[in-house]
Design a protein around this nucleic acid. Structure first.
Lengths: 239, 239
DNA sequence: GCAATAGTGTCTCTTAGACAGTATGCG
DNA sequence: CGCATACTGTCTAAGAGACACTATTGC
């Protein structure tokens, strides 16, 4: 049989295949806390429960899996661009009552100041990651949100990824506070500044932020930051 | 409508969903070279071409995606255990002529001395990764094998992962040679030994390997190696 | 002894962390 | 001025790389 004949007779609906979704762990910083976006499920299954934003890959709309993630991000936040990274794909027959379900988990880091509150859909809320363990989410979302968090924390140890959570201009004290929040440890101002400056992860804007006390220089992120590593990792194995 | 009613009426075959596969980049060391396992496709599509081992997730056999990867590994190599890591999930409407196809890519690191050659299926071969670019593989497998290689190389910069390619006992000179092969750079014996020993990635067996010249101490991998980081990465950004 | 491979002593350089000290704003 | 926050000077310690050196085998 030729490939052509084979394809003519091939019908995907003849096979049992998993249902395929994308789930998004969308993180932002609100009042110094790491938050994650949740949506209340409007439809069965798990109707009424809080869940990660996500949904089926749309074979007509999505040219890649990343496209599906991008589309979900835009549907829920209105944002066309943000840092997006695939974390892991999880599948099992028991995680969705409809059957063997496979989901591609992404995390997104967004600058909360870019969000118009009126662009947020109804039945949508930000939850501090501190409160995650007291919140029962739909499906296995409690589990997978931790996978996304673990990835974010791991990457924060050796890259400047948390910069993606910042507004376009920020002070180094603010950035240091963000790393402290994510990694749950304190840093010395001297060595923190040395790290991010010598790795050229940020550059001066020339402007300053006047906030009552001594003005702080404002920085912006450079282009080269996503896969720029610290010369030594911010070891955090202990905590 | 209750969840129960909803599920009763739900039929996955009513929807257009991607076909879902697992692909395996199985690496081993043969004569000091990193090799990858390829199989010649027995069936349409791409019949007769060399491809990564892989196949459909079997909803009856596989309880997780990792199970599917594990099953494929065993079918092709006979190995029940090996280091297995999910790399990335790739999907698009064009990568498989049968339709929108989603594949979960894994890499496996195996100790070649554990393979019985007669357990290898027919139409299976090891290819040196050096020769990959001269070999046209089925589907987008040239592309995705590079994703697996990139992951392996990135992890070799900061973890002891290449130990998984070694036999159960090995000398530090041999291990150093493996890192050199993978990362394509030389290392100083002094600092290399210092790194792996101080990170407690290996321990002495008490035995020695007599290979003509001065005997070399034999080491085995410790339990803690997979996510143990070097205190500073083996920077390799240049090459 | 010699060749070859295994493994070490020691110096230098870079960088993280500690911590005290200086700088610059406001009231 | 005092206070708070921003930022720096300087010392110490750890670890990586360079490289010469020693160690242990077979022949």
């Amino acid at each position: 049989m030729s490939e052509e004949e084979y394809l003519k007779n091939y019908n995907i609906h003849d096979y049992d295949i998993p249902l395929s979704t994308v789930d998004m762990a969308i993180f932002s910083l609100i009042e110094g806390e790491l938050n994650i976006l949740l949506v209340r499920r409007k439809q069965q299954p798990c109707k009424g429960m809080w869940a990660l934003p996500g949904g089926f890959i749309d074979l007509a709309l999505d040219k890649t899996v990343d496209d599906a993630a991008q589309r979900k991000l835009q549907e829920k936040t209105g944002l066309k661009s943000a840092y997006l990274e695939q974390v892991e794909t999880i599948g099992s027959p028991s995680r969705d009552p409809r059957g063997w379900a496979l989901t591609v988990l992404y995390f997104a880091l967004i600058d909360i100041t870019k969000i118009n509150d009126n662009e947020l859909e109804e039945n949508t809320k930000w939850l501090s990651v501190r409160d995650l363990d007291q919140t029962k989410l739909a499906f296995d979302h409690n589990l997978i949100v931790h996978k996304a968090l673990d990835r974010l924390r791991a990457k924060a140890c050796y890259t400047a990824l948390p910069i993606e959570l910042m507004p376009s201009e920020f002070t180094l004290s603010e950035l240091q506070a963000v790393f402290s929040t994510i990694l749950n440890r304190e840093f010395q101002a001297k060595s923190f500044r040395q790290r991010v400056l010598s790795a050229k992860m940020v550059e001066e804007t020339g402007k300053s932020k006047i906030s009552g006390k001594r003005p702080a220089k404002l920085y912006r992120s450079t282009e080269i930051d996503r896969d720029t590593y610290f010369s030594r990792p911010l070891l955090d194995k202990g905590s």
